[in-house]
């Protein structure tokens, strides 16, 4: 390790930011891949891998990927929910590797809903 200059501190912080985003649980966008038994059987793992692959390829540091159980619509799996900033969460259904990558580029990075794959905008009311 060489002696640091002041601007190096920012560089180090930037490099470690993807880890810190996860630890702090606060990113620009959050992708939830539904991984109940139905989701896994329908290929949720491939969807997860596609998202992770995109994150790596684009060197993205402020997107969180997480998993959840069955969302109750097993026939439309694999599913994923994308929350971008303060916008309403969007549920995407019948996903494939290509669809996931398109959603990533347009919604997760750009904040624009991909309406053709979306099932609904907003979530159920929880009482």
């Amino acid at each position: 390790m060489a002696k640091l200059k002041i601007e190096d501190l920012d560089r180090i912080a930037e490099e470690a930011r993807s880890k810190m985003t996860i630890r702090e649980g606060a990113g620009k966008a959050r992708i939830t891949v539904h991984m109940g038994t139905c989701g896994i059987a329908a290929g949720a793992r491939a969807i997860m891998s596609a998202f992770l692959d995109e994150i790596k390829a684009h060197n993205i540091k402020d997107v969180i990927i997480t998993t959840s159980g069955c969302a109750g619509l097993c026939s439309r799996e694999p599913m994923a929910t994308v929350e971008f900033g303060n916008q309403a969460p969007v549920k995407y259904v019948d996903l494939t590797d290509e669809k996931a990558r398109k959603i990533f580029k347009e919604h997760v990075l750009g904040g624009k809903f991909v309406m053709e794959y979306a099932l609904s905008v907003g979530s159920e009311r929880i009482r």
Partner: peptide
């Protein structure tokens, strides 16, 4: 650099 989705503390 690796990109993880989970950090187990």
């Amino acid at each position: 650099m690796k990109r993880y989705r989970l950090q187990l503390m």
